[in-house]
Amino acid sequence: MTDTVLYEVFLQLKQGGAHEHAGSVRATDDEMALQNARDVYARRFHPLSIWVVRSENITGSAPGDTGPFFDPGDDKPYRHPSFYTVPRGVRDV
């Protein structure tokens, strides 16, 4: 079992919620990755759904990207959708 690859695991914990990153597992293929994710992460968190994706298929930003990528647009108030009210009872927006 030396030819395993790394998968990232995402769990959906509530109906309509986002799949959130939980960790990673090693596996030889998608079905083994799904089963391993279930065994390593699902028994404690009771998710509704699990996604696994090969880590190599994720493209990430580089550490040097911090400034240009992430500086908040606080000087551009039109970017913040804070000018309308959200109906009561609406969550997770």
């Binding site: 079992m1 395993t4 597992v25 090693r26 596996a27 089963q35 391993n36 065994d39 390593v40 028994r43």
Partner: peptide
């Protein structure tokens, strides 16, 4: 277990 993941699977 042969791998960490399978070790946990068997224990489960």
């Amino acid at each position: 277990g042969p791998t960490l993941e399978e070790d946990i699977a068997l224990a489960n």
